[in-house]
Amino acid sequence: AGATVIERCEVMQVGHDGRDFVAEARQGGEPLQVRAEVLINCAGAWANRVAQSFGETVPLTSGHPSMVVTEPIPHFLPWSLGVEGGSIYCRQVARGNVVLGGGRGYEQDELRARASHDSILGLLPQAAALLPALRHVHIIRSWSGVEGYLPDHHPVIGPSTTQLGLLHGFGFCGAGFQIGPAAGEALAELVLHGRSTIALDAFSIGRFLPPRSDAVDLLSSHPERKIS
Rank of each mutant, 00 (worst) to 15 (best):
A1M: 01
A1P: 00
G2L: 08
C9E: 07
E10V: 13
V11I: 15
M12F: 02
F21Q: 05
F21L: 08
A23N: 03
G28E: 05
E30R: 08
P31F: 08
L32M: 10
L32K: 08
Q33A: 12
V34W: 13
V34K: 08
V34I: 15
V34L: 15
A36L: 06
I40T: 15
N41F: 11
A51Y: 00
Q52E: 13
Q52D: 15
S53F: 05
G63N: 06
H64D: 00
P65D: 06
H75F: 04
F76C: 10
L77N: 12
P78N: 10
P78S: 13
W79K: 13
L81Q: 08
V83H: 02
Q92C: 11
A94L: 13
A94Q: 15
R95K: 08
G96N: 10
N97E: 15
N97W: 07
G101F: 06
G102N: 00
E107C: 05
R112M: 03
R112F: 00
R114E: 01
A115V: 08
L123P: 04
L131K: 05
P132L: 09
R135P: 04
H136I: 11
I140L: 02
W143H: 05
S144L: 13
D152P: 14
P155M: 05
G158H: 08
T161A: 13
T162M: 07
L166R: 07
H168M: 15
G176N: 10
F177S: 09
P181N: 02
A183H: 02
G184D: 10
G184N: 09
E185W: 04
A186W: 01
L190V: 02
S196L: 05
D214A: 10
D217A: 02
L218K: 00
S221R: 15
